[in-house]
Design a protein around this nucleic acid. Sequence first.
DNA 1: ACAGGCGAAACTTTATACAATCTTCGCCCA
DNA 2: TGGGCGAAGATTGTATAAAGTTTCGCCTGT
Lengths: 235, 235
Amino acid sequence: MAAKSRPKSDAPDVSDRVSRIREGVTAAILEHRLLPGTKLGEDEIGEIYGASRTLVRTALQQLAHEGIVNIEKNRGAFVARPTPADAREVFEARRLIEPTIVDHAVDAVSPVWLNRLQQHLAEEREAELRGDARASVRLSGDFHRLIAEMSGHSIYLGFLKELIARSSLIILLYRRHDTPACGTDHHAEIVTAIRKRDKQAARAQMLSHLNEIEAELFLKDPAADELRLADVLGA
Amino acid sequence: MAAKSRPKSDAPDVSDRVSRIREGVTAAILEHRLLPGTKLGEDEIGEIYGASRTLVRTALQQLAHEGIVNIEKNRGAFVARPTPADAREVFEARRLIEPTIVDHAVDAVSPVWLNRLQQHLAEEREAELRGDARASVRLSGDFHRLIAEMSGHSIYLGFLKELIARSSLIILLYRRHDTPACGTDHHAEIVTAIRKRDKQAARAQMLSHLNEIEAELFLKDPAADELRLADVLGA
DNA sequence: ACAGGCGAAACTTTATACAATCTTCGCCCA
DNA sequence: TGGGCGAAGATTGTATAAAGTTTCGCCTGT
């Protein structure tokens, strides 16, 4: 029995073909290459990844469950278009969960993890300097996911993955100016608090970080989605 | 076009055939008619619901994403068997989320909702009196879900659905005695606090309720799942 | 010229057939 | 008698084809 036969039920099955499709599409959405509302045709994606529609469909259903794709019956799959109400819910949930996650991360602090965090900060700075907006957006989300992995809490990790993916769409849709997605300095301050094992500070930093992200959004409060047309016509 | 053509992306699509399968299997698991570890053959289920394997597979994948079914590659789908570590994570998450949910529920209180809550309590009492363990288990979870629906927070609702489903399996696996799943009195006290619009009390009641449920569990801390065999032999 | 309806094309949904993998049972050998 | 090898059976993974639905263009009638 080699160690390779250990799917362990938690492993993402990176070698799986469905996962390759899912992660490819997810990356495209998170990096803002696929815009909200874009139609995701099964043939189209299948041809790109050299897979049949069966596998594409499986991947799209998983993405729909994660909330970044909407599947409309008999019409197909589309990149989700979160409403302002959705956005408020997502950030409220993040404000609730992430301080607790960072608490656990402090408990799990170790040289190995600190090293990973440092390395990640370096990658973020590099992408920022390079002006690579796509990488910046992706890495910004990855930072939060990294802390969730560090916490060792698999349920929080699963929840947060959903919330981060949706956040990426929300930021794309509703940011006021073309501000950099996530202040890298904030991330550094959070890491500092984690290194000092200061839960109080870590929670506070995380919370203010999330508040700042949301504050940079323009979450207007239309009566319903139907008003979107009026917005477009007014522009 | 009648109002029926409104899937609205959030509706459970009750008329959908996949959803019928999913909800049927979910109910069977939540009512403890399907025990953890049970193999869920695709042909088997397909024959029961008169559907082809394509639809069954879709339903099973959704259940796997909700965490109550494990899909092992080339082996099939099985009812999940949460570990004690999973159990602790689930209840920690519930202790974090549900007090906040009940907070929102208090904000949303109205005669209509109070009526539904009362009606639900009556159903629970009736099932308890009737000695219908299956209905009791299901209704006990439905109470928590009802409050989440009342909160109007769709993300919390989605998260809680997962947590409740897993909780049902956990309680089945790890309860000390054959205690009634969930104290009905506790639920009544929570409703009372909600009616009084007393957030403080509602949060406290919810928290102690969750603590009590977890306290009635026997979450031993084996090194790994492999020790399960030793437990059985020791018994 | 324009509104309404018919029809074809494209896509999704569902079913079925085929391929790959795992399990199980029987047999053989040490 | 116990263990290991191997083939048959069963089950899942994947692809392809048939069926149903929506959408868009075009045509006709007013």
